[in-house]
Design a protein around this nucleic acid. Structure first.
Lengths: 236, 236
DNA sequence: ACACGATTAATGTGATCACATTGACCAGTT
DNA sequence: AACTGGTCAATGTGATCACATTAATCGTGT
């Protein structure tokens, strides 16, 4: 097996607004790239290497990697190597079960706070998801899909749960890419439309079912991918 | 209202083994103090101040505070102040609901992996909890109680959920202290014994109920405390 | 006496440096 | 040709420094 070199990584850049500090920019950039699966498991991430690519000093990169490590997005090994963790079938199952458990709860708790404006926004996001799907833009589809879920749950103003959910997304990041790339459009559209309809009807049970089904669809599409086992190597 | 000064803080120190790096030591120390409620909400935490108390350079403290901030344990405000977040009634409810939801799930998922050795360990921890309760040692009681839960959930070898739960504990930290200080011993002992019995009987439903009841007891004891509203000031 | 404004102290951030540890690479040996 | 040994480069860590921004303190004016 060829050892993956850090030079292989291609990052999608992020606009850096003037008011945001360097460490926030680096963190958001790496986080976004992990969420949409741009950084594959196994490739090593080094502080100085990333600092060189991003043209910043090693300091902000160090902080960003530490934060991502404590969120489980990357794994700091004993031997001074920071990598995107490999996946195992059991880990994958755990993550999916937790997504269903927590996101269904989050959706139901957000329901009472949903207003017409929120529904309109969700419909807009759904449209943009379809656009990205039709254009075959995997990264954008993945990020927009997460936007849909985050916007829904964030309607609840007392937010504890969204960071927990995002931690799960971060760990599933490299695989959501696979899911999207293999997903027939109907699935995503259907479930999101179902969710929106349940919102309009203030139907908590229907909302739960729609969210759960949406997540399960993604999982099923991942498991149906040929050669998926290549990504499920044993954890070193 | 008197402004709380950073000099007020008294930390319970942690042994620093030779093999652990400075940043890990600082992080664990602050985390432990937050988990057991030694650091009260509202008091400001400064990098240089903590570095002075701990006799380390500001660098490890900076990293530790950033990690704790991304876990929600402390709140980095715009104006360069890092504080333990104030609590609101709604936030408190959210945290408790999530604890029940996720910990019941975690317990059930851990059940198949529980062996006699694990049960023996849990019984030992329960004994040490009772000792700490009888001695009126609030911090130790709080930490040992968390040890009980963590040991139970950690029986599941594919661990995703424990970090999520610990994030909730961190945010509830200052209040678990209050809960313990007002808790009649019977409650804790009862629920833990119930949980252990359910483990011995491989009774998933009973285990869920015991864990849920244990958490609810803690919540009830907090809500029964006179003057608890002092801790629920509006978030700035 | 109270309020407002300027000076001073304190703080977070990012850069640079020194050091210990580890991996990578290459030559030499079997 | 494969393995082993040593040397060198690369890496993470922690300390120190400079700078911009903010809070605190004190003095002045009303």
């Amino acid at each position: 097996m060829k050892t993956l070199k850090s030079t292989d990584l291609e990052l999608l850049m992020l606009e850096r607004t003037a008011e945001m500090k360097t460490n926030q920019w680096v963190y958001q950039l790496l986080r976004t790239n992990l969420l949409c699966g741009k950084i594959a498991p196994g490739i090593p991430l080094t502080i100085r290497g990333l600092a060189g690519v991003l043209n910043v000093s090693p300091m902000p990169v160090r902080e960003a990697l530490h934060r991502l490590a404590c969120e489980g997005a990357v794994e700091a090994k004993n031997n001074r190597r920071v990598i995107v963790p490999m996946m195992t079938a059991e880990k994958f199952s755990e993550l999916c079960e937790l997504r269903i458990l927590i996101e269904a709860h989050a959706a139901e708790k957000a329901l009472p706070y949903i207003r017409e404006k929120d529904i309109a926004r969700l419909e807009l996001i759904d449209v943009s998801i379809n656009e990205a799907v039709q254009q075959g833009d995997v990264e954008t589809t993945s990020l927009r899909n997460q936007d849909f879920h985050r916007s829904l749950y964030s309607a609840n103003p007392y937010q504890i749960v969204v960071p927990l959910i995002e931690s799960l997304w971060l760990q599933l990041g490299p695989f959501s890419r696979i899911a999207i790339s293999k997903l027939e459009k109907i699935y995503i559209v259907d479930r999101h439309v179902e969710a929106i309809q349940a919102l309009k009807q203030q139907n908590g049970f229907g909302l739960r079912r729609a969210i759960e089904a949406d997540i399960r669809d993604g999982i099923a599409s991942i498991k149906s991918v040929e050669g998926i086992h290549n990504y499920f190597k044993g954890v070193a």
